[in-house]
Amino acid sequence: MTAYFARRLLFALVLVLVVSSAALLLTRLAPGDVTAQLGPFAAPEEVASARARLDLDRSPLAQWVLWLARAGRFDFGDSFLYNRPVRELVARAAGNTAILAVVALAAATALGIPLGIVSGSRSGPAASLIRAASLVCVSMPPLLTSLLFVFVAATTRWLPAGGMTSVEALDGRWSTWLADVALHLPLPALALALPIAATFERLQAQSIAEALQQPFVTAAAARGVPPREIVVRHAWSVSLGPICGVYGIAIGTLLSGSFVVEFVAAWPGLGRLTYEALRARDIYLVAGCAATGGLMLAVGMMIGDLLLAAADPRVRERPAG
């Protein structure tokens, strides 16, 4: 058990390190650099001083080592684009993405799991309806759902069509800010959640249908346990294994999906920041975003592993995989 998690932890560390280093070197070796932001008429001295500020005058390897040494002390350098420390920018953006992702994951769970139990354990119009709805949703990736929702919101004006806060609600009070964010959140969160909810529903339905085939269900039925209780208490707990397994994978889906949703719905998260940093080749911002993304991924995977281990003793016993 301990060895298993030690290996997973090591994998997580390697992941963060490799991803951020690769991002740094990729940006450095790509043609052009961030000083292009100064425009074509910038004085050569100005360009040179900007390059020096970002350590672009050193060799890529030296810059990488320097960055690593600083990152070890939680100093991720400055963003040229924003002229602010990368740590500050990334922390805020990552927080926004985390809010979006956590709410979306919760919504997907709250929608997908109960519906999956119903459609997997019953037949009839309700189950068919759920199955059809989930097939539609699974064919509507975040790009399509977010475009659709933004369109609906823009036409009906039921919800704000994009952004995370509105200018009117900037009076500096916490409660106003929270209410404002809560108003902006449902659209992107639901756009992100729907396809994942559909995936959860399908998995849960399959898994509970399989569990209901098991002999212990027949035994419980023979003992006179009512059908509802068999499904909820007995079959469901057995069917949880595959679901817990998918949480570890869902985190990658969430991050990828949230990039798209953030872009379409103008949510100021890590995806947008990464995109801006990449396009401008703002080297330390790119590396910082990659490190944060890698960290979120690693944390999500660890939580997924824990869930899986909690649900399935065989995982705990397995010699790391």
Binding site: T27, L29, G271, T274, L297
Partner: peptide, 21 residues
């Protein structure tokens, strides 16, 4: 396993952005 866990959209974006626009 390593490539599998990477969020594909980000990697695609990074690779594409590293090339001339």
């Amino acid at each position: 396993e390593f490539v599998l866990v990477l969020p594909t959209m980000y990697v695609a974006l990074a690779l594409r952005a590293a090339l001339p626009l």
